[in-house]
Design a protein around this nucleic acid. Structure first.
Lengths: 186, 186
DNA sequence: ATTATCTATAGATCTATAGATAATGC
DNA sequence: ATTATCTATAGATCTATAGATAATGC
């Protein structure tokens, strides 16, 4: 259609955005190419002129597609310190909206089944997160940061899995208290 | 076929066992009824005389199908104390064998998308685990136990997701140190 | 004339159902 | 005669491909 110069780039970005949300909401296996393209306002046939395969899309989503989300850990870096970071991560708004939230919490147990490219892209983002958490500590400690992030991811997943609201809250609160203890920790 | 009295029960148990392993290895969406039945030595058509649906099988697997696995947290209860429990959970053998390991680590981010029955069954097992971990602490504390378990689950998932072995080890070790700190922690 | 997108389709796979088959207890 | 399992199939859905269509820059 010889559309305006950057038309295809815009479409591509739109597909990435839709995929980033739907993958976190429904799982990497839980949503198909046709659904993603449909939500981007297109038909499924055009997908393969943008990406060579669904797995390639997954790799790109891990590499860059989930950066803009308002609930990602990174979006909390403007937090004043580690305390408010932890509180932002473990709040109920995050629990209710995996599609806008942390990729590790939304997809943690699925990632290891995917391509090395996808896992490497995830690992790069994880290291960024670890570095940033470390920087929020009184004295930087990347291993401490790894543990704090693991605790946040685990707490959020269990809080989402459990159907009872009271128990879900308890998991969030227990995670919060322990993460704070680790952050200040001796 | 009027097989020996308990033939059908045995088959049913076999299907549950196969499902418990394959679900943890490939994900709840990653393996189909035909594959499970095939691995149990049967054809797919007979599945529905044992379970009304795949989701019903998932519920049963969460309720009881994963109890016998050698790497489940519960299998480490003969551990002398909290330290050896933590070390057993976060060892590399567990990382390499999700199919025999902790259901929360293997399926954590998928559970919330399934039936209330499946989630409730998972929650019951989680509460058992929390109680048992609490009992291993110097003074029982269920919220502390929730946080410790969340940390173990998160650490294991991230260690599995990351492709680099050195980084994976670091995640396990960092989780171990922090879990021990939480366990002893003031 | 170019090319982003669409239409149509192939070939796998998935959950689920209906009715046939076959093996053993009566 | 009973019934656990098998065969065959329906109807969805999935990834991927090939070639047609249509909208705009030249």
């Amino acid at each position: 259609m010889r559309y305006p110069k950057e038309h295809k780039d815009q479409t591509r970005r739109r597909v990435l955005e839709v995929a980033a949300a739907r993958f976190r909401k429904d799982g990497l296996d839980g949503v198909g190419v046709a659904t993603l393209m449909g939500e981007a306002g297109l038909t499924h046939g055009g997908f393969y002129s943008h990406f060579p395969s669904k797995e390639a899309l997954i790799e790109e989503v891990f590499a860059s597609g989930m950066d803009a989300s308002t609930l990602r850990p990174e979006s909390a870096w403007d937090a004043e310190g580690i305390e408010s970071f932890i509180e932002r991560y473990l709040r109920e708004a995050h629990r209710e909206h995996p599609e806008k939230g942390c990729p590790a919490a939304a997809l943690g147990s699925e990632i290891h089944r995917h391509s090395k490219g996808a896992r490497a892209a995830f690992a790069r983002k994880l290291e960024e997160t670890v570095t940033k958490i470390s920087g929020l500590l009184a004295e930087p400690d990347e291993d401490r940061a790894r543990a704090i992030f693991s605790l946040l991811v685990g707490s959020m997943q269990l809080a989402r899995a459990v159907p009872d609201r009271a128990e879900s809250r308890r998991l969030l609160d227990a995670g919060k208290a322990a993460a704070l203890a680790l952050a200040k920790g001796k």
